[in-house]
Every structure is written in structure tokens, then in C-alpha cells.
Design a protein around this nucleic acid. Structure first.
Length: 560
RNA sequence: UGGGGCGUAGCCAAGUGGUAAGGCAUCGGGUUUUGAUCCCGUGUAUCGCAGGUUCGAAUCCUGCCGCCCCAGCCA
């Protein structure tokens, strides 16, 4: 009866550590650098770090890894806090910065110097690179590698005092220039940067490097499990080296897992930034962006994002997850939550020739077919309506059970109508349909149980409200744009289409932040930036599954 | 051609010597006033390949192949 849920390897390690008594409390951290916006890959890390701690009654720090001033800024810090919060995670009083520990870090570095574990190098950056060797050749020791402890201490102190210019000296760990692991070839620990820091101000002109700052910050915060992505795997020997040398009272353990890649999307900071800078998208929060801000603005519910990363799993295998998995997660949560409405994206006018000129009937429509407690609303029905252009086809195949010449279709929550005439413009395009309705088929009256195969959505012309609706598609045309040398060649030119839609009147009050389903079309929400009461702007979050579109596509392919 | 990591169905993923879970997708079928939802059913997976150990291997051993990461005073 007690089926043991299969745990991912990290949760298994944590479970074992708790059971063996190695740890009595789990402490994790999510450590983004505030130099860019968070994206879907970070969602994975956030859910893992906060999730694993919460599941075990532990704690999680939100730590801004701000050791490289000049690249980092307060705006990013604020955006990151906002994003993590939106995802539903609470760091309580555990918002920290690597820069909060600059003092401790300086002390730790000094101790390292005293014990001979670090030295001040005065080679230039280029010279250091030359000395580093290559993947297959060992590096060479710097001529400054054997300075005395006293000299190193003096130099390091003076570096801090601001006596030297940027790049004049650097503090390096003294490990092994011939190590096959490049990270162990005397990595830099501190560099001189006469630049203001977004959090520490102008207190410092030397700043610690990632490996040192990150390891020690983990130790200072008593992090038990330091979870990071695979590319840091060969940094772990260095991580452990710092801990061995400095022997902090709490010893964290670094564990690596694979990043989550989303098909048809890029997540590298450089590429995301280029999309914004080059104006290919409207900003970091463009609804096509895989950033948290973008997905939020697009209308993806938090629950769907969490479900998505849960489905992706935690392993060490590189993964490229299909866009469909994300979309299905969104459909699942919205399908249950979102109220139903009607909207016509590409309107085609229909005149009901046998319907009284100024008659208006109020049709009762369910807000959710599976949740009657969500109630109903009324939709005005009149002689002139809009239907979806796609719901009419002149030369329809037999499988097309929507409106066709002489054919019948049910108007959802309305009447059954028959298409009698087609009105065309000078160039022959269909601009209007003349139809007749069957008065005995009013929805819900039960006066006629006549059935027709198709049901389509509609909106009353006179009562409809106008809206610009943005239809989004993937930003790239290839499944893994990350692998492309130049992503510009694989951009999807059709990733955004804006249509002027006609919506049922109740949509005039749709609040920003609330998603609705347009029946038969998909899920939509008001755009948090561009929507205005007088000029509604909606985003299509995701389409509904569309088996007709699939059939059409197959038919097209069969025809060649 | 140095080091580290990874290879189970289209995409994820369990499995840790006893004869391949599950999810998503796919493909059938049923219900349906959303071609949605829902419900049923559906997979010859050479467990990267080749050897070996064993009564028995996805699991252990050896060799090979493929993919990813590392030569920032970035993180």
C-alpha cells in the first residue's frame, strides 16, 4: 500500500542524508547573477531548490551572486525577486547577496594566503592565459608564484586599499598548473575593479571570483546541498579544495544536474539579450520569450510552469523538451480554471434573413461545461452575427462539419442555421453569408432535439466589442536554435500575428491577469502592458488542441 | 589526440543481477451543443555498439562509438 514515490537522484541523496543523520535540516539556495532575466531553465532550479527544502522542512536562500559589478544592476535584482515571488516561493528573511560577505570573503582569502594557498600574481591577463597551457598541455608556473606570505599579504592589502589599477595584480589560488582540470591551474580568486557595486557601493575595489565567492557563501549560509547545473561539474574539485583549505564549520556539498532546454527556444543570456537589443522582440517580457517575465505576460499560469518542470524531471542527462509538453501543461491548468467565452478572431458576417430586424434575444451560456458552479452568462443574439471565417468553406470536404453552402450548423448556445447565399465583393471574395435560422432549435429549450454535426461560435455584430488579439508562435523554426551558429537565419518570421477580433460583450470587463478560454480557439488574457479599457489588447496564451487542423495538415502532406 | 559528464520508445523518465514502470506525444474507438474536455484501447524499446562474467545482465567487467562541458582577471 505504501508505494515509495520514485525520487530523483538529488532527492534521494537528501533523503539518505536525513536518514543517516548527516543533516538534521536541509538548507539550499537559488543563486542567480543579477545580470539578466530569469528564464524557463531557472524555473527548474528555483523549483528544485525551494521544493526540495520545503518538502523536508528546510530553508532556502535567494542569494544574488553579485561578484562582477559592471555587469550587474539593481533592476535585475528587482526583476529576479519579482519572478521568484510570482512562482510562489518565499525566501522570508533569507534574501542575501554574495556581496554581503565581501568582508568574510576578504578574511578567508587572507587566511588562504597565510597558509600558502594563494598568492598575488602580477602577470597581465594575456600572460596568465599564455601560462595556463591548453587542454592537452600543462600550464607553467607564474614567476610570481613563490612570493613570500608577507609579500602576498602586503600586496593583497594594498590591492584592497586601491593602490593599484585594474588588472595590475590578481590573487590566485596555488594549486597545480599541470592539472588536467583547467579549473585547478591556479584559478583567480580576486581581481581589481575600480567600479561601483550595485549593492556594496564604493566600499571595494577588489572583487572575488565566482568559484571562491560561491563556495564560501554556501559555507557561510550553512547550505547543506548546493545544487547547480552540469557545466560546474569540473568546478567541484575546486569547490572541495576551498573547503579543505579553509575548513569552515559547515561543509556544503555541490551536486550537479542537467539544464532544461526547451525546443524551439533559446535560453542563453547572450542570445536572449540579442533578441531584445536588436528589437526582434519587444523586450525581456515579450510573450514569445522563454523568460519568466515573458511567460507571465503571455498568460502561462504558475501551476503549469511547475507542472512542466516536474514532468521534465531531475537527472544528469541533457534534455531538449518538446514545446508540446509546456503547452499541454498550460492547457491542463487553464482547461480546468478558465471560464469560457466567445470571441471571433477573423470575423465573417452572417445575416439571418428570417430573423426579425431589431429582435435581440439573450442566450444563456455556461461559463464552464464541467463546472456548473461557475454559473452562466447571457449573450445577445441578433439578426447580424460574426462567425469565424475558418468555420465556413465553399468547397468543403465531407469530413468538414461546419458551415458550407446549403449546409447546417449549430450556433453554440443559439440556433441551428442553414447557409443559403454567399455575398461576394468585386474580387469574388466571400464577404457575407445569408443564412436562415430554425426557430425550433433554440439552445436549451428542448423544443427540438434535432442534431447537426457541427457547432460553431459566434458574436452579435451590434453588441460585439473590438479587440486586438496577438497570436503567438514559436520564435524559431528549428527545434534547437541553441545549436545554430547564427540564430538569425532560423528566426520564425511568423511568430507574431495581430488580428482585429470581435468579442462577446462580457469580455469588456475581463480583468488583466485572468485567463479565459475562447471556445474552440484557445486561451487568452489581457496584455498586462498594452491593454486599455478603450482599446483591448489580448494575448493568445495557447491554442486548444485541434484535431481538425491536424487532419488538414495530414491531407496537405499526402497531396504533397 | 588532457579532464569531467551523459547514452532506456518521437520527447521526458523509472529501474542498482531475475527477465523493461509511468507521463507526454502518436494511432484507434466511445461520449460530447467547444472537431476541446473526458473515457477506453494502442508501443516487436537490438536498454548506444561489441565482447565477457553469470543459470540469468539495462543493471557487473573490458573495449569501442556518439553527444555535452572545460583553456574569462564571466557566472
Amino acid at each position: 500500500m505504501s508505494e515509495t514515490p520514485s525520487r530523483d537522484f538529488i532527492r534521494q541523496i537528501i533523503h539518505d542524508d536525513l536518514e543517516s543523520g548527516k543533516h538534521s535540516e536541509i538548507v539550499t539556495r537559488f543563486p542567480p547573477e543579477p545580470n539578466g532575466h530569469l528564464h524557463i531553465g531557472h524555473v527548474m532550479s528555483i523549483c528544485l531548490n525551494f521544493g526540495v527544502a520545503a518538502e523536508n522542512g528546510g530553508r532556502t536562500y535567494l542569494r544574488l551572486d553579485d561578484t562582477n559589478p559592471g555587469k550587474e544592476s539593481k533592476e535585475y535584482v528587482d526583476a529576479i525577486k519579482n519572478d521568484v515571488h510570482w512562482l510562489g516561493f518565499d525566501w522570508e528573511d533569507r534574501l542575501t547577496h554574495a556581496s554581503d560577505y565581501f568582508g568574510e570573503l576578504y578574511e578567508s582569502a587572507s587566511r588562504l594566503i597565510e597558509s600558502g594557498g594563494a598568492y598575488v600574481d602580477s602577470l597581465s591577463a594575456d600572460e596568465i592565459r599564455e601560462h595556463r597551457g591548453t587542454l592537452t598541455e600543462p600550464g607553467r608556473n607564474s614567476p610570481y608564484r613563490d612570493r613570500s606570505v608577507e609579500e602576498n599579504m602586503d600586496l593583497f592589502r594594498r590591492m584592497r586599499e586601491g593602490e593599484f589599477g585594474d588588472g595590475e595584480h590578481v590573487l590566485r589560488a596555488r594549486i597545480d598548473m599541470s592539472s588536467p582540470n583547467m579549473n585547478l591551474r591556479d584559478p583567480a580568486l580576486y581581481r581589481i575593479r575600480h567600479i561601483e557595486h550595485q549593492n556594496a557601493g564604493d566600499e571595494w575595489c577588489i572583487y572575488p571570483m565566482y568559484d571562491f565567492a560561491h563556495t564560501m557563501s554556501d559555507a557561510y549560509e550553512h547550505i547543506t546541498h548546493s545544487l547547480c547545473t552540469l557545466e560546474f561539474e569540473d568546478h567541484r574539485p575546486l569547490y572541495d579544495w576551498f573547503l579543505d583549505q579553509l575548513e569552515p564549520p559547515h561543509r556544503p556539498r555541490q551536486i550537479e544536474f542537467s539544464r532544461l532546454n526547451l525546443a524551439y527556444a533559446v535560453t542563453s543570456k547572450r542570445k536572449l539579450n540579442a533578441l531584445v537589443e536588436e528589437g526582434i522582440v519587444s523586450g525581456w517580457d515579450d510573450p514569445r520569450m522563454p523568460t519568466i517575465a515573458g511567460m507571465r505576460r503571455r498568460g502561462y499560469p504558475v501551476a503549469s510552469l511547475r507542472e512542466f518542470v516536474a514532468r521534465a524531471g531531475v537527472t544528469k542527462k541533457d534534455k531538449l523538451i518538446e514545446m508540446g509538453v509546456m503547452e499541454n501543461c498550460v492547457r491542463e491548468t487553464l482547461g480546468e480554471q478558465a471560464e469560457r467565452r466567445m470571441g471571433v478572431l477573423r470575423p465573417l458576417k452572417v445575416v439571418l434573413t428570417n430573423y426579425a430586424q431589431d429582435q435581440v434575444e439573450m442566450m444563456e451560456a455556461m461559463n464552464h461545461p464541467a463546472r456548473p458552479e461557475l454559473g452562466t452568462r447571457e449573450m445577445p443574439f441578433s439578426r447580424e452575427l460574426y462567425i469565424e471565417r475558418d468555420d465556413f468553406m465553399e468547397d468543403a470536404p465531407r469530413k468538414f462539419f461546419r458551415l458550407k453552402p446549403g449546409g447546417e450548423v449549430r450556433l453554440r448556445f443559439g440556433y441551428i442555421i442553414r447557409c443559403d447565399d454567399i455575398v461576394r465583393n468585386e474580387s469574388g471574395e466571400v464577404v457575407e453569408l445569408h443564412c436562415s435560422y430554425d426557430p425550433d432549435t433554440r439552445s436549451g429549450t428542448g423544443s427540438s432535439d434535432r442534431k447537426v454535426k457541427g457547432t460553431i461560435h459566434w458574436v452579435s455584430c451590434e453588441h460585439a466589442i473590438d479587440a486586438s488579439v496577438r497570436l503567438y508562435d514559436r520564435l524559431f523554426t528549428v527545434v534547437n536554435p541553441n545549436a545554430e551558429s547564427d540564430f538569425h537565419s532560423v528566426l520564425n518570421a511568423q511568430s507574431l500575428e495581430t488580428v482585429e477580433a470581435k468579442l462577446e460583450p462580457s469580455l469588456g470587463e475581463l480583468p488583466v491577469g485572468q485567463a479565459v478560454q475562447f471556445e474552440r480557439l484557445g486561451y487568452f488574457c489581457a496584455d498586462e502592458k498594452d491593454d486599455a479599457p478603450a482599446a483591448r489588447v489580448l494575448n493568445r496564451i495557447v491554442t486548444l488542441r485541434d484535431s481538425w487542423a491536424k487532419l488538414e495538415k495530414q491531407a496537405m502532406q499526402e497531396q504533397g
